[in-house]
Design a protein around this nucleic acid. Structure first.
Lengths: 144, 144
DNA sequence: ACAAGTTACATCAAAAATTGATACAGTCGG
DNA sequence: CCGACTGTATCAATTTTTGATGTAACTTGT
C-alpha cells in the first residue's frame, strides 16, 4: 500500500459526497436546475445570462425562463449591464442569498455530524488536506 | 492559523468539486435525474423501485416513467423480486454500466489533470486524506 | 460613420419530464 | 381469510425544456 495518491478513489469519494449532499432535503421544492443557478449566482457574483449559461445544464431559452421565474419569486435581481445594452446582470436578492446560505448550512451540519465520529488523528489528517483540496478547485477555476 | 478542521471550508470544497463534475460534458444528453438513477444503481446493486426512490429527487410516478425509458434504451434491466410479487428489481445492463463507468473515467481524468499541478508535498497530504474521506462517506452510509 | 456580421437575450409552439390522484395486485397481521 | 397496508402502474394536468426564430445592440472593416 504505497502512499501514492489514488485519484480514482478520490473521484469516488467526491461522487459519494455529492449524493450525500443531494439527498439532503431542500427547504422548498426547487428543482435541480433552479438550485444550481442560485448556487452559481451566489458563488460567482453578478453574471450575465450568457456567462451563467455554460455552467448550467440548460439551453438558453430554458435559462431565460428559469431566471424569469426566480425573479418573480424575488430570489434574483436583473439589472442592465452598464457595459452592454443587450445584456442583463443577474444577482441574488437577500432572499436568494438566504436560500443558498441555508442549504450550505445544512451541508455543514451534516458534515459536522460525520466528522464528529472520526478519531482526532483522522480529523488532523483531514484538516491538513482542506487547503490542498481548495488549491485543486482553484486550479480548476483557473484552467477553465 | 490553527490546524483545526474547518468543516465550513470542507463543505465549500465539496460543493465546488460538484460543480466541476457537473460541468463535464456527458456523452449523451441524459438529464440529471437519469444520470443520478444510473449512478445509484451502479453503486448500490439491484434495487427495488421503492428503495431507489428515496435517493432520487423524484416522486414515484416520475421514477416509474424514467425507469421505463431507461429500460427502453437498454440501460437497465427489470426482473421480478423473488421475495415480493409486487416488486421489481432494477439493475444496470452492460450498456448502463458502461455509461456510469465512462462518466467516472472522465471525472478521474479531470481530477488527474488538476492533481498533476500540485507539488509532491501537496499530493502526499492529499494521498493521506483519501482514506479518511472514504471513512466519512462510510459513516454517512451507516448513519443513514 | 455605416453596412455586414455577430452577440445577447426574448418569444413561441412543440416535446419532454414531473406531479397528484387513483387503481390494483400482492403481502401481512390477527 | 379479511381488512389494512405496500409496491408499482396509469392517467390527466402542470411544469420544464427545447429548437427555431426574432430583435435590438455591439463590433469590425473600410
Amino acid at each position: 500500500m504505497p502512499d501514492e495518491l489514488d485519484v480514482d478513489r478520490l473521484a469516488m469519494v467526491v461522487e459519494d459526497f455529492n449524493t450525500i449532499f443531494i439527498r439532503l432535503p431542500s427547504v422548498r421544492r426547487y428543482n435541480f436546475s433552479t438550485l444550481s443557478v442560485l448556487h452559481t449566482l451566489g458563488r460567482n457574483g453578478p453574471l450575465r445570462l450568457t456567462d451563467l449559461l455554460p455552467t448550467e445544464q440548460l439551453k438558453q431559452p430554458a435559462l431565460t425562463a428559469l431566471v424569469a421565474r426566480l425573479e418573480e419569486d424575488g430570489l434574483i435581481q436583473r439589472r442592465p449591464d452598464p457595459n452592454d445594452g443587450r445584456a442583463t446582470l443577474l444577482s441574488l436578492t437577500r432572499a436568494g442569498k438566504q436560500i443558498v446560505r441555508s442549504r450550505h448550512a445544512e451541508r455543514v451540519k451534516k458534515l459536522s455530524r460525520l466528522v464528529d465520529q472520526l478519531t482526532p488523528e483522522e480529523r488532523a489528517v483531514l484538516a491538513d488536506s482542506v487547503h490542498v483540496l481548495t488549491r485543486l478547485t482553484e486550479i480548476a477555476a483557473d484552467t477553465t
